[in-house]
Design a protein around this nucleic acid. Structure first.
Lengths: 351, 351
DNA sequence: TTGTAAGCGTTATCAG
DNA sequence: CTGATAACGCTTACAA
């Protein structure tokens, strides 16, 4: 290892003052080209790299964003979502000279305690929140304490779209399910079922709406018949399978099911274990499972989400809403997902 | 937000010098109880928290470990492994006052460049490496440049177990597969097949050995017959399915297959799509898929791995091998995995 | 046991 | 355009 060189070392070699070295790094236009080049040479020769902590102390910015790593839910298939998002976020953050710091928390209150710790210690400049839910106490705390943050996920309050209190990026699940439903309708299906989550989850209700809209638009099933085409279950494969069986029974009276769209790949897999490949099934999240088993799925463009999050965090608003950013500056990004269509050959079916 | 209080503020309130405040924090035993209490009160009242960057600058330690977030392989099922490991690592690191900083890299060379960046800038004190492979250039670079690091995964060189150059933690996949094989043998199976990866992958060869040992030990199949009981494929569901078909053909001559153990859950799922639940199948990694579909799988105790990694990184060796730590201090941890047995009811099979 | 003084490596301010 | 001086908030000799 050996001691890292400092600005002084560079200054000595280049025959300038420490200050000039700093200028070359932070305000190159202030320094005469000849001098600049000399300094840059010295930097290269010494392999000098600014000491991050020193810089952070001096500038009073950590250039670091904190993100909580969810407790990995053992049962959901979609754990890799956060993983992919994290990757995209880290990569993009890096390009802007931002670091990503991880933390964990047992529950929302604990998470708030971590917010306090990390920001009081000036360890991070802002936070990225995931998996927001209705009445989320975390965002309120962050707002009350003037912390910078952006959520991946809408606040799911009354005023979502216009809420000026809160910067967010989200994927338009409703349009995703609308597309999925239209897709199978386009394949000739008339009676398209929906396997979703219990009402009240924001995300889930929104996705369901997409299915509903597409079905109403198509008019292949009378309004009164739609209720028998949907079932709900928590986001796990076995309970999804169970819900699928209920759904089949309910739908049988009206003429069965031609196709199925789901709120998640977990549910889609659950359904798959029940009906095999007898009807088209569309999942959500485009997890490796969907790719492996070859069923279509709605993909969240996580790279775009990450880009949006960083824009909001570092842009005019600086991750805060009480700034003097022009009011017309958008405070959120609603990103359209993309349906990944797969041939869906009978990979899982009986031999 | 407002300005955070500093040691000076605390000192003023408590009526002591800055120094005493620092002592209360870093060497409480040096300060008289009465004074200490007064200072602690002041700290509480002000909500004081030491400025992390200032401390890091002064102490010349970042108290941060860097870990690369792998590019999420779209096809493997086991992406969540890193995810769970990361969670365990972050949680444990936090308890020791360590932070976990993420970075990404496109390839090993790029990763080395990141090592250089992060350690030159004193952003991290050490690294945790995952997915090591034979002839990994990264570890060599880290050794050559005297950087602290621990790998999750053996170096897979000639001298693995005794290599004093390199601190590592790994899961004993061989014993995992031995257990898995013994388990199905215990269920009455005689001809247990093995679905693995192409030779040369270290991890894969090791796991295969576990199967081989258990089969030899059981003696239910003559040595010459073992070759027709194994097949290899890259770690993806469809190619696993294909390999399974080959395996079935090859095994048919000798009397078919009674059970199957696999190098991964991806392969297990591939096999499952071919033979359904007609024979017991054991996977590896205990991913959500195994839990969801109800097949047995070998679980890596990632929490123990994380603990081991941190011990090695912060313990006597300090993540480096050229220290004056007593030679008898263990330089690696080989952790036994745990077989998770599931009833394996016919979830995926025909309706 | 407590206080004083110095310095970690950087950048901001303000002369020249 | 360049260079001296001071400070960011903390800890660590050393002295009292």
């Amino acid at each position: 290892m050996g001691a890292q060189p400092t600005v002084s070392d560079v200054a000595d070699i280049a025959g300038v003052s420490r200050q000039t070295v700093s200028n070359v790094l932070n305000a190159p236009e202030l320094v005469r080209p000849a001098t600049r080049e000399r300094v840059e040479d010295a930097i290269r020769v010494l392999g000098y790299r600014p000491h991050a902590s020193a810089r952070r102390l001096r500038t009073q910015k950590s250039s670091t964003i904190g993100i909580r790593l969810d407790p990995t839910t053992q049962d959901g298939i979609s754990g890799s979502i956060l993983d992919r998002f994290l990757h995209a976020l880290t990569e993009r953050a890096d390009r802007q000279g931002l670091r990503v710091l991880l933390f964990t928390a047992d529950d929302p209150d604990d998470e708030i305690e971590q917010f306090r710790r990390l920001s009081d210690a000036a360890d991070v400049d802002g936070f990225v929140l995931t998996s927001t839910f209705v009445g989320d106490p975390r965002t309120q705390w962050l707002i009350d304490h003037g912390r910078s943050f952006v959520t991946f996920g809408r606040p799911w309050g009354i005023d979502d779209m216009t809420d000026p209190q809160h910067l967010w990026v989200d994927v338009d699940g409703r349009s995703g399910l609308r597309d999925a439903t239209r897709h199978v309708l386009g394949l000739g299906a008339r009676r398209v079922g929906y396997l979703g989550w219990p009402a009240g989850s924001g995300t889930g209700d929104d996705r369901r709406l997409g299915w509903l809209e597409a079905m109403r638009e198509a008019g292949t099933v009378p309004e009164a018949g739609l209720a028998s085409l949907e079932a709900a279950s928590e986001d796990m494969v076995p309970s999804g399978a169970e819900a699928m069986r209920r759904l089949l029974e309910a739908a049988a009276a009206g003429g069965g099911l031609d196709a199925l769209v789901c709120a998640s790949d977990s549910l889609a897999l659950g359904a798959l274990t029940v009906v095999g490949r007898s009807i088209p099934i569309v999942g959500y999240d485009n997890t490796p499972i969907a790719a492996s088993l070859g069923f279509s799925s709605v993909e969240q463009p996580l790279d775009e989400v990450a880009a949006g999050v960083l824009e909001l965090l570092t842009g005019a608003h600086g991750g805060r809403v009480d700034t003097d950013a022009p009011v017309e500056d958008p405070r959120h990004r609603l990103i359209a997902p993309r349906l990944v269509v797969r041939s869906g050959d009978a990979l899982v079916s009986p031999n």
